[in-house]
């Protein structure tokens, strides 16, 4: 395997795309389907527990889910002082969905790609070398950017909702540099606007790239560990996987926390 290590790694880092040539309108079927299944699992389990939630004697699953919900609720209450029906469910969805997507990293790195190859070869007669399946959706920059852009839209929406279009527009032009002199204010307006744009863009990019970078790096290290002789893999694989439990939870938590913080900044006046 070491002889074609490059090929192996490249194979692992190639998406299953709906149109082989790529281009903007092709879809990463692996990312999309895995995240969709995980989304269904999250929504299904939580909705089922929520519907049959028992006041008197909650089961273990219910208690676990209550713990998660309570954790999210506490964070939202601590940070976000406005009133919003959206932000807490949004934070819960972000936390759980990202956690589940990250969790795919802990599956054996070859397991699902190999199943995909077997299925593709057996049922569709595909060449196994050209069956690609990347199982960690959050290691796909499309997935992380989709979420951060959605959060960015929420930030803008919350800003407008809290301050009105005029108030938000005014803030874009007058913060962070204030001036009482109208001429000076006119000079500062484009500078402020540039600052605000950079700030908004930085929020979105930092959110998505942090998650993407962590997950991509984690996946890559799992792939590299898979190149070791099989008897030695556990030496590095086990510690890295155990450490990665922390990483995936932390990344999900960080994404959620930053979303809450950004949204609370959006509704507060500068």
């Amino acid at each position: 395997m070491a002889s074609n290590a490059t090929e192996y790694i490249q194979h692992h880092l190639t998406f299953w795309q709906s149109s082989p040539g790529g281009g903007f309108w092709s879809l990463n079927i692996d990312t999309f389907s895995v995240s969709l299944v995980l989304g269904f699992i999250f929504a299904g389990v939580f909705a089922k527990v929520a519907r049959s939630a028992s006041l008197e004697n909650p089961g273990r699953l219910q208690l676990f889910i209550e713990t998660v919900v309570e954790m999210v609720d506490t964070q939202v209450r601590d940070v976000f002082h406005g009133k919003s029906k959206v932000i807490a469910p949004l934070a819960l969805t972000i936390f759980c969905w990202i956690f589940l997507m990250n969790f795919m990293d802990l599956l054996p790195v070859d397991l699902i790609p190999m199943i995909a190859q077997w299925v593709g070869y057996t049922f569709f007669g595909a060449d196994p070398a050209h069956v690609y399946f990347r199982v960690v959706p959050s290691a796909d920059v499309n997935a992380t950017f989709a979420m951060s852009l959605s959060v960015l839209i929420c930030i803008i929406g919350f800003s407008i909702g809290a301050k009105g279009v005029g108030g938000w527009g005014k803030e874009l032009l007058t913060a962070p540099f204030h001036a009482t002199n109208p001429i000076l204010a006119a000079i500062l307006a484009p500078i402020n606007f540039a600052f605000q744009l950079v700030e908004l863009g930085a929020k979105g990019i930092s959110l998505s790239l942090r998650l993407f970078g962590n997950m991509y790096a984690g996946e890559l290290i799992f792939i590299l560990i898979a190149l070791l002789p099989w008897g030695a893999q556990w030496l590095l694989g086990a510690p890295w996987a155990i450490f990665h439990i922390l990483v995936i939870t932390l990344q999900a938590f960080v994404f959620m926390m930053l979303t809450i913080v950004y949204l609370s900044l959006a509704v507060e006046a500068h």
């Binding site: 795309q17 709906s18 790529g22 281009g23 903007f24 309108w25 092709s26 879809l27 990463n28 990312t31 999309f32 995240s35 969709l36 989304g39 999250f42 929504a43 939580f46 909705a47 929520a50 519907r51 029906k85 959206v86 469910p89 949004l90 819960l92 969805t93 969905w97 959706p137 796909d140 499309n142 997935a143 950017f145 989709a146 979420m147 852009l149 959605s150």
Partner: peptide, 22 residues
């Protein structure tokens, strides 16, 4: 690529679902 849009839509639906039923 288009995954971005697909993911964003999925995300929006998930958030709506959580807000409504969870």
């Amino acid at each position: 690529n288009a995954t971005l849009l697909g993911q964003a839509i999925t995300f929006a639906i998930l958030v709506w679902f959580t807000m409504k039923f969870v």
